[in-house]
Design a protein around this nucleic acid. Structure first.
Lengths: 341, 341
DNA sequence: CCGATGAACTAGAACGTTCTAGAGTCTCCG
DNA sequence: CGGAGACTCTAGAACGTTCTAGTTCATCGG
C-alpha cells in the first residue's frame, strides 16, 4: 500500500539530465559554476521529478545547520506571540527555527534534548525553570539565549523586558490621574515578580508616596489575584498594579462582585498585554512588552555568538509600553463629595 | 571566540574506548551484540566525552526518520492543548514530533515546506485553509492527517470532533433543565459552524421544539458574540448555544451589561472548553472536545499509513463531552411568578 | 602559435551514522 | 577431540548531500 518508490535524489536528477551529481547540487543551491542553458534544463528536470532537497544530508555534509532551536511552553499565551516575532527575525538573518514544546507532561530537559540531537547551532529558551548549573552545562556546548528569565550569567545571553520600568509606567500613569493610595499585588516566586515589585516601590517613593506603599502577595494565576482582592477589600486603595493580566482578571472579578465599580471606585493595571486584556469586557489597562524588539534582539545575539562577531553585552533590557484601556481613570473626589456635578 | 572543537562523534568515543565505531553504535542504540563489560565501558567514555548522537546522520543512514511533522497556528489556543496530547501519543508510538508554526506573517505553505525538507514521514495539519487540490498534491508524497478540518477526501485522513453531537448534548442539557426557547448563535464561515448549527436544529426538532428554533448569525470572535447578543435582546430566549467560547464570552458580556442575570434570566453554552471558559469569573458551561482521543487517533492513523498496516476508515469522528459549569441553570418559572420561594 | 585565464563541468572524498557480512573466540556435546 | 553454535566484535559500504581538486575546452593577449 505504501509508496515503495524512493524519494528522488540528486543522483536521479543528474542521471535524467545527463550531468554529474555535483553540477545538479550547484544548480539547486544557486551557486555559481553552471551554464545558463544547463541550469535551466536541470531545474526543469528537478521540477518534473518532484525533487525535494534532503536537509539532513545537506546539513550533515556542510557542517552548519543554520538552525536555531526554540523551547517554548504551550501553556503560556505570551510565548505564542513571541514565536511570531522570532520567525520573522530568524528569517531575516537567514536562519531556520526548529521548535520544541514544553507541555504539562513534557519537561524542559526533554525539549532541550531533542533540539541538541537536531544539531541546532544555538538555543533560545522562553522562561523555564532550569537551574543555573544545568544552563551552564548546555551553554558550554552551544550559545544559549534566555528570554524572560533572570539568569544573570557570564555564559548565557539574556533578553528581557525592563520590569522595573514597566511598574514605573503603571504608577506614573495612576499618579497622573490623581491617585495616591496605590497598592501592588505581586507575583510570588515567578520570574520578574521581584523586579516589578521593587519598581513599584521605587516609583511610589519617587512620587513622595512612600507612606502609601502596600504590597499584597499574589501569584501568576487568576485565583491568586482573587485571593489578593479579598485581602485588599478590608481597606480598598483607589488603584492597584498587578503582577500580570491573568491575576488582574481574577482581582477584577472579585472587586466587581463586591460592588466596586472599575475604574469608578478603583483602577487596575495588569502586565503583559495578553489577548485576555484586550477582550472587550475586560479591557484592561496593562503594560505591554515589546515583542518584536525582544525577538530581534534574541536572534541577533544568537547569530552573533554563532558567527563569532561581537555581540554586545550579555544582557538586553527592552523598555515596555503602557497600554491604556478601560480599567483606569481618575479617583473619586475625597470621601463625602458628590459623585458627579 | 567560538568553540572551535568539533563535536564528539562515535569515532571519538570508539578511539578512546579502544573499540570499533560499529560497536559504539550498537551500544548507544541499546542493540544486542555487545558484552556487558564493554557496554559499560563505552557508556562511561561516551558520558565523559559528552557524546550526543547526531540525529541527522542517524536518519540519513537508516532511511527512516520516525519524525511526524505538525503544522499549528500560534493564534489558536485550542491548538496548544492539542499539541500536548500529540506529544504524548507520538512518544508512545515511538515517533518524534517536529513543529512548524503558522503565524500572522508566516503562511501554511511555508510551514509545510519546512517540514517536507526535514524528511518527516507524515504530516499532521491543524485546521488550515489549504485548498483541496494542494492538499492532494502533498498527500501524493506522504501520508497527511488533517485535524479539525472538513476535508472529505480519499487521500487524506481526517480526525475531528462530532460537532452535531456536541450541539445535541448542549440542547439536551438545556431541555433537561426545563428550557424550551433555546436560540443558537452560529459561527458564520468557520469550519464546523454548519455542522454545529444543523445539530442544534435537529436536536430541537427531536425534542418537539421546532417552532422555537432560532438561529442568529455570529462568528468566531468575541465581537461576533456581542453583536449577536444585541440582536437576541429584542426578544430574549431563556437559553443560547454559541458556536465557540470566545463568541460566548462576548455574548455574556453584553447580556450582563443589559441587566440580565446568567443563568437566572438566560443560560449560555459555549463550545471548545478553552482555558477562557474555565476562568472563575466566566465559568462557562461548554462542549469539550476530547483532545487525547483525537490526538491518539491522529497519530495512530499517521503511523498506520507510514507502516502500511490497516488504518481504518479515512474519517474519525470523536464524540465531545459537555462540561457543565456556572452559566446554565433552570429557567425562571413562567412570567409573573415570584423569583424565589 | 603558445601559454595563461577562465568558464563549465566532473570524480571522488567527506560528513556521522547504521547495516551487512564475516572473523575470531568460547562452550558444549557427541 | 572436533565441530556446531552462540557470542562478541570489526571492516567497510551505504545514505544524499557538499566540497576540493581537478580536467576539458574555448578564448585571449602577446
Amino acid at each position: 500500500m505504501q509508496s515503495a518508490e524512493r524519494r528522488t535524489t540528486l543522483a536521479d536528477v543528474a542521471a535524467e539530465a545527463g550531468v554529474s551529481v555535483a553540477l545538479v547540487s550547484i544548480v539547486m543551491r544557486g551557486a555559481p559554476g553552471a551554464g545558463a542553458a544547463t541550469r535551466e534544463r536541470v531545474l526543469e528536470v528537478a521540477r518534473r521529478l518532484g525533487y525535494q532537497p534532503d536537509s539532513r544530508a545537506r546539513l550533515l555534509r556542510s557542517g552548519r545547520s543554520r538552525l536555531l532551536g526554540v523551547v517554548f511552553d504551550v501553556r503560556h499565551p505570551f510565548h505564542h506571540d513571541l514565536l511570531t516575532g522570532l520567525y520573522d527575525a530568524a528569517g531575516k538573518a537567514g536562519y531556520q527555527l526548529t521548535l520544541s514544546a514544553v507541555t504539562p507532561r513534557r519537561g524542559e530537559r526533554t525539549a532541550i534534548g531533542d533540539l541538541l540531537q537536531d544539531r541546532c547551532e544555538a538555543l533560545v529558551l522562553f522562561g523555564g525553570q532550569l537551574r543555573a548549573s544545568e544552563l551552564a552545562s548546555i551553554a558550554a556546548r552551544l550559545p544559549v539565549v534566555a528570554m524572560m528569565r533572570a539568569a544573570r550569567r557570564r555564559d548565557v545571553d539574556v533578553v528581557h523586558n525592563d520590569d522595573a520600568l514597566g511598574s514605573h509606567q503603571a504608577v506614573d500613569h495612576l499618579v497622573g490621574l490623581g491617585h495616591r493610595r496605590i497598592a501592588h499585588v505581586d507575583g510570588g516566586q515567578w520570574h520578574g515578580s521581584a523586579e516589578r515589585r521593587a519598581g513599584y516601590q521605587e516609583a511610589m517613593r519617587r512620587h513622595g508616596l512612600a507612606e502609601h506603599i502596600r504590597v499584597v502577595s499574589g501569584g501568576a494565576g487568576e485565583e491568586d489575584g482573587a485571593r489578593a482582592a479579598e485581602r485588599l477589600l478590608v481597606d480598598p486603595p483607589t488603584a492597584v498594579t498587578v503582577f500580570n493580566d491573568l491575576s488582574a482578571t481574577g482581582l477584577l472579578d472579585v472587586l466587581r462582585r463586591h460592588g466596586l465599580s472599575v475604574p469608578g471606585d478603583i483602577s487596575v493595571v495588569g502586565y503583559d498585554d495578553t489577548g485576555l486584556s484586550r477582550l472587550a469586557h475586560i479591557d484592561l489597562t496593562t503594560v505591554g512588552q515589546d515583542i518584536d524588539t525582544m525577538a530581534a534582539g534574541a536572534i541577533e545575539r544568537a547569530v552573533a555568538r554563532i558567527e563569532g562577531t561581537p555581540a554586545g553585552p550579555r544582557e538586553m533590557v527592552v523598555p515596555p509600553r503602557l497600554m491604556v484601556r478601560g480599567t483606569t481613570g481618575a479617583p473619586r473626589p475625597a470621601a463625602g463629595a458628590s459623585r458627579q456635578p
